[in-house]
Design a protein around this nucleic acid. Structure first.
Length: 190
DNA sequence: TGCCCGATTAACT
DNA sequence: GTTAATCGGGCAA
């Protein structure tokens, strides 16, 4: 996999307790962690938080056949299809009576991808991984999709901004400054 | 049952 | 900056 003293040993999955915290804290801490699925691995560099019944969230109208993982236990996936053609991966957070999840928007390839793989953008990331809505509501602590521990990104490299494609001014987007795995124009990566 | 539109992306002008 | 691709969810009727 990666180089380093224990390169062969796969790092451990993040435990349920990692996700069972306030969503904004989980979002910030997810930067630098490694998403794995189907022999592929990528370092997370851009995420967005969606918390409760705010208008921008799929949870705004309460639980439905699509969004129910947002209302379920922390540490499960929520995958939805957007514009009829792209899938987006979310990670449910917080033990709760309201819907909350983190949208995985960008990552840097670590292993298992071809050289041209592009993971900057939620639709592209899922397409590169092969993640589809069939993988919604799977347990990150036991299922085929996992998030593995890795060193925290230093605060000086963490950017925060409004969410992409969301009109409100909430600073719920977190990203790694300067990373090629961050979506959007250059200004959104600085 | 129909209509509108979206947590997107790429390919235009 | 604008628009097409493409379709299921949510709400009005």
């Amino acid at each position: 996999m990666t180089t380093g003293p224990r390169s062969g040993a796969a790092s451990r999955r993040l435990p349920r307790s990692f996700f069972a915290r306030p969503t904004l804290v989980v979002a910030r801490d997810l930067l630098g962690k490694v998403l794995t699925y189907d022999g592929k691995a990528a370092r997370l560099v851009e995420v967005e938080a969606y918390i409760g019944a705010e208008p921008a969230s799929h949870a705004r109208s309460g639980p439905t056949a699509r969004n129910y993982p947002m209302f379920g236990p922390p540490g499960f996936t929520y995958v939805y299809r957007i514009y009829g053609m792209y899938d987006c991966l979310n990670l449910a957070t917080e033990p709760k009576g309201f819907g909350a999840a983190i949208l995985v928007r960008g990552a840097e390839p670590v292993a298992g991808f071809n050289e041209r793989a592009r993971l900057a953008g939620p639709g592209l990331l899922c397409a590169a991984f092969g993640i589809t809505t069939a993988l919604t509501n799977v347990d990150l602590t036991r299922g085929p999709v996992a998030v593995r521990d890795a060193p925290q990104v230093p605060a000086r490299l963490v950017g925060r901004s409004a969410r992409i494609g969301v009109g409100d001014g909430k600073l719920f987007r977190f990203y790694v400054r300067g990373s090629s795995g961050v979506s959007g124009p250059a200004a959104a990566r600085a």
